[in-house]
């Protein structure tokens, strides 16, 4: 592998360690996702100066601040809108969005589907912990059936959003899912997503141990991570999601990929072809 040529990955090179201790609860899956991301950035050789991390509100939103890059902690649900503006204004920057299940699918759902449709070269990492952790553990669009949250005291009865199916349906040109249990696979998936020319949507199943885990007696963080594995199907590196609402039936890896033309390329090609036509007439 080319990795032999790469300097050994030291996460501290990419962190704002002066902000430590960080705000994450013990066992929170977001820390694992953060490590995988920085590892992917390291291996891709992306300069920290050219890296912009845009996040929304919630536990996922606070994660970006620890990255030693240009970090922008925006409003609830809107990081994709900010990222669209920034990327259009500055195509030279690597723009990565960190969002959560509530941020991305509930309040920011409209921005997600249109970002998928446009296919601008952004990477969207949705950390799915099935709950609004920052506000104390309310039900989210991805809370599994029968789970208890502070706003589903009798257990959740609403259908669960399959974010990847949504992203595929809306036209994202790369869609993938991974669990925090598989740190290396997660890193590789992130590399693939970031390198992809177009909009990449990656769902990362992350655990909220302190609030969601406790409330539902899912055990300590180790047990929660292991339960990811128990639910993980080895034959599931498939290419499609056949049903929109399929809670806890986890397919991981790249779920969809196509070579649809990227937004700015499309814009450029369109302009060129119009100019060509104008010159020919």
């Amino acid at each position: 592998m080319i990795e032999e040529n790469i300097q050994r990955f030291d996460i501290r090179d990419y962190l704002r360690t002066h902000l430590f201790p960080h705000f994450m609860c013990p066992g929170c899956g977001h820390g694992i996702a953060l490590r995988a991301l920085l590892w992917a950035i390291h291996e891709l050789g992306i300069s920290k100066d050219k890296l912009a991390i845009i996040s929304g509100i919630g536990c996922s939103g606070r994660t970006g601040a620890y990255i030693d890059a240009h970090t922008i902690h925006t409003t609830h649900g809107r990081p994709l809108a900010y990222a669209t503006g920034l990327k259009l204004a500055r195509p030279d920057l690597e723009v990565i969005v960190i969002t959560g299940d509530g941020d991305c699918l509930a309040i920011g759902g409209n921005h997600l589907i249109h970002a998928c449709r446009r296919n601008l070269n952004l990477t969207c990492l949705m950390l799915n912990n099935e709950t609004y952790g920052m506000t104390g553990g309310q039900v989210s669009p991805t809370t599994s059936n029968d789970r208890f949250t502070t706003t589903t005291p009798l257990g959740n009865y609403e259908p669960v959003f399959d974010a990847c199916a949504l992203a595929i349906g809306a036209g994202a040109s790369l869609v993938g899912r991974e669990i925090t249990m598989h740190v290396t696979a997660l890193k590789d998936l992130m590399k693939e997503g970031i390198s992809h020319q177009g909009f990449s949507f990656l769902e990362i199943l992350s655990d909220c141990t302190e609030i969601y885990g406790r409330k539902n007696e899912l055990g300590e963080s180790a047990e929660m991570v292991l339960s990811q594995k128990a639910n993980y199907r080895s034959d599931s590196y498939g290419n499609q999601v056949d049903e929109p609402f399929k809670p806890r039936d986890i397919t991981t890896g790249i779920l969809a990929k196509n070579d649809r033309v990227e937004y700015l390329d499309a814009c450029h090609q369109h302009k060129m072809s119009k100019l060509q036509k104008a010159m020919n007439t």
């Binding site: 845009i54 922008i72 925006t74 409003t75 809107r78 994709l80 809108a81 900010y82 990222a83 669209t84 503006g85 920034l86 990327k87 259009l88 204004a89 500055r90 920057l93 409209n110 921005h111 589907i113 249109h114």
Partner: peptide, 19 residues
């Protein structure tokens, strides 16, 4: 953009980029 909220977000994002 897809809505008014997104437009304002994109404007601020672009301005952060220096435009």
């Amino acid at each position: 953009m897809e809505d008014e909220i997104g437009s304002m977000g994109a404007v601020v994002g672009a301005s952060i980029g220096g435009v």
